[in-house]
Nucleic acid binder design. Structure first.
Length: 173
DNA sequence: AAGTATCCATTTA
DNA sequence: TAAATGGATACTT
């Protein structure tokens, strides 16, 4: 973790056909996205709603639309600004590399490692992927292990399979 | 198809 | 600081 993490301004729900995601916003943009869970399904977030700035509402509108598009296998027309300042330098390099993977494409952990100039750091790349605060938009799910094996996924392998399937990506095992 | 050795940033003790 | 821990890989049975 990082001590100079940007303070969160609001947490808003994003309803989708797959459940209610939770979006965390900082002053810089979307700083976190959480998969639906029993925890946030019932949780009322109405309290924070009235505190959101006009800019925050705008970001949230964009994020909501983008997430719903992404979950239905379409490419989002536009994304809200992402605040990845909470990550270490290494993690930000990895996340940045992930954002360059086009929808429908995949890379291996080694390829990402090579892309950021550390061919042997595949394992560390895996760690950075797991630390990704904004899944889906930062496409950590498009990273497969060597030979297109599935590998792992912090947010649950079911999600990884589902996201890949909706982008028309094929993988083995 | 399993085991083993080595990889590297982060976390935890 | 040192040891443990992952969304790994490549090499060796």
């Amino acid at each position: 973790m990082n001590s100079k993490t940007e303070k969160l301004l609001a947490t808003l729900p994003i309803p989708t056909t797959d459940g209610v995601f939770m979006a965390h916003y900082s002053a810089r943009g979307l700083a976190g996205l959480v998969f639906p869970s029993a925890h946030n399904q019932n949780k009322s977030s109405i309290a924070t709603k009235t505190l959101v700035s006009a800019q925050g509402r705008r970001w949230h509108a964009v994020a909501t639309k983008a997430l719903n598009r992404a979950l239905t296998g379409r490419v989002p027309k536009s994304l809200p600004p992402l605040d990845l300042s909470s990550g270490t330098a290494f993690q930000q390099r990895v996340w940045n590399a992930l954002c360059r993977i086009a929808s429908g494409e995949t890379r291996s952990y080694t390829e990402i490692a090579t892309a950021i100039g550390q061919r042997t750091a595949a394992r560390a790349v895996g760690g950075a992927c797991g630390a990704n605060p904004v899944p889906v938009f930062v496409p950590c799910h498009r990273v497969l292990a060597a030979n297109l094996r599935l590998g792992g996924f912090s947010g649950g392998l079911d999600w990884k399979r589902k996201l890949l399937a909706r982008e028309g990506i094929r993988f083995s095992k």
